[in-house]
């Protein structure tokens, strides 16, 4: 089922080719057009949408808030936050890699090429690269790999070397490998099926990279366990880092204070909004669950 064309809520959302009457917008509501929506493996799908160019201001680590069609007879009330997987400016396309889980993502999975899809964004603060960093280490697991993927593009554009450690349950659900490899990253995959994804082994790999001076900065997303590991090694070896965090969200703009998480800044506990203060945060300030 597609969003009805008569959806009276969305008159002000920008369609492809429309004149932007509010060019000052930092973020917007866009009616995108689905180009494809195919399965990547048994659990994940990749949706490619064409958008108004104002939506292409997005950069790595930012997110969009997706208005999900309903997979059943009742409404999906809230939008779902998704990281930008890939920005293809030439084709005016955005890509989202998503795990089909609850009602919202099952709804997204029903979209077909040609359907309209209402997306709001780009939202939040994404990844930043310090010009002094020559080599970075990206460590992700599961859905987190979708969030980290555009870092490969960003790093390549800035001439920064990347080692990507991709963790997954089994080899067939390791994602983003191609994207990282295409950008010249060195890819290491670790999986549960042969125990290589255990924290002890990942720690060894990270320690090796630190010793080889291949770790000017750490980036992670998708696993509280791996976050704790990178935080500890980062502290011990003085490696700065960034982490993308998740939390249930409502407005996505910073107004409603639903998506709060605890952070520790200079020894003091503070609450921050994942949607606006993040979703990418200083790794050492994050408090893992």
């Amino acid at each position: 089922m597609t969003q009805a064309k008569t959806d009276h809520y969305t008159n002000s959302a920008l369609k492809i080719g429309q004149v932007d009457n509010y060019p000052d917008r930092v973020a917007g509501e866009f009616i995108s057009k689905v180009v494809s929506n195919d399965s990547v493996n048994g659990e994940y799908k990749l949706i490619v949408v064409e958008v108004h160019e104002a939506a292409l201001r997005a950069y790595a680590g930012q997110m969009f808030h997706l208005l999900c069609p309903s997979p059943d007879s009742s409404e999906v009330w809230m939008r779902r936050p998704m990281s930008i997987y890939r920005i293809n400016r030439d084709a005016r396309q955005l890509e989202f890699l998503y795990k089909v889980e609850g009602r919202g993502t099952r709804g997204i999975a029903t979209l077909n090429a040609g359907d309209e899809f209402n997306i709001a964004g780009p939202l939040g603060h994404g990844f930043t690269l310090d010009p002094q960093w020559k080599n970075i280490v990206v460590l992700g697991r599961g859905v987190g790999l979708a969030t980290l993927a555009p870092l490969s593009q960003l790093a390549a554009d800035n001439g920064v070397g990347v080692t990507a450690i991709l963790s997954a349950r089994s080899p067939d659900v390791v994602m983003s490998r191609d994207l990282f490899e295409a950008c010249g990253a060195k890819v290491v995959t670790v999986v549960d099926t042969d125990n290589s994804s255990e924290v002890g082994n990942v720690e060894k790999i990270l320690a090796g990279l630190i010793a080889e001076k291949k770790a000017d900065a750490f980036f992670t997303c998708g696993s509280e366990r791996l976050l704790k590991l990178m935080q500890r090694l980062g502290r011990e070896h003085n490696v700065p880092g960034q982490v993308a965090m998740e939390q249930i969200m409502v407005c996505g703009i910073g107004a409603c204070y639903v998506c709060m998480r605890t952070f520790e800044v200079n020894g003091e506990k503070v609450l921050k909004r994942v949607c606006r203060d993040g979703p990418v945060f200083n790794m050492q300030e994050a408090v893992a669950w």
Binding site: Y9, T10, N11, W77, R79
Partner: peptide, 16 residues
């Protein structure tokens, strides 16, 4: 709520 569902809802409603 309408502005959560559609961030531009307030403006849409004024125009409509």
């Amino acid at each position: 709520y309408a502005a959560f569902r559609n961030p531009t809802a307030l403006v849409t409603i004024i125009e409509d």
